[in-house]
Amino acid sequence: MLLLLLLQVLASCLWLGCSEVVTSFESSCPQFFFRATPPNEALEPESPAWICQLYKNQYYYATLYDRNRRIPVYSAYLYQPGPGKRPKTWLVEPQLMGPTHPKTMEREWTLLNYFSVTLEQLSKSQAILQDYKNLTGLNRGHLNPSGHHSDSSSRTATFTLTNIVPQNEKLNGGAWKNYEQQMMIRRTQGCNTTYVIVGAVPGNNYIAKGRVNKPSHIWSSACCEVDTNHRKAWAVIAENDKNEVQLLTLGELEDRLTQLYGRDQVSLFDSDCPRE
Results as ranks from 00 to 15, higher is better:
121 Q>I: 08
100 T>M: 11
109 W>G: 04
119 L>K: 14
110 T>K: 14
123 S>V: 07
117 V>G: 03
105 M>L: 00
137 G>H: 08
116 S>Q: 12
108 E>P: 11
132 Y>S: 01
100 T>S: 13
122 L>Y: 01
122 L>F: 04
122 L>N: 00
126 Q>N: 03
130 Q>Y: 10
123 S>Q: 08
111 L>K: 01
109 W>Y: 09
101 H>E: 07
136 T>K: 15
119 L>Y: 09
107 R>M: 11
99 P>R: 02
134 N>H: 15
138 L>S: 09
135 L>Q: 03
116 S>H: 11
123 S>I: 06
103 K>F: 11
116 S>D: 14
129 L>F: 08
115 F>T: 01
101 H>K: 08
118 T>V: 06
111 L>N: 04
116 S>K: 13
126 Q>H: 02
123 S>F: 07
128 I>M: 01
99 P>W: 09
113 N>C: 09
136 T>L: 14
106 E>I: 03
117 V>N: 04
138 L>H: 12
125 S>R: 04
114 Y>G: 05
130 Q>D: 13
122 L>C: 02
119 L>N: 06
108 E>W: 00
124 K>H: 12
101 H>P: 02
106 E>P: 01
117 V>P: 10
116 S>C: 08
119 L>R: 13
122 L>D: 02
125 S>N: 06
99 P>N: 04
118 T>A: 05
130 Q>E: 14
119 L>F: 07
112 L>V: 10
135 L>I: 04
128 I>N: 00
114 Y>I: 08
115 F>A: 01
115 F>L: 01
105 M>Y: 05
138 L>Q: 10
126 Q>D: 03
119 L>I: 14
104 T>W: 04
116 S>T: 12
101 H>F: 10
123 S>Y: 08
116 S>F: 06
135 L>D: 02
115 F>W: 06
114 Y>W: 06
109 W>T: 13
114 Y>K: 12
117 V>D: 07
112 L>G: 05
137 G>W: 13
113 N>T: 15
137 G>V: 05
131 D>G: 04
99 P>S: 11
134 N>A: 15
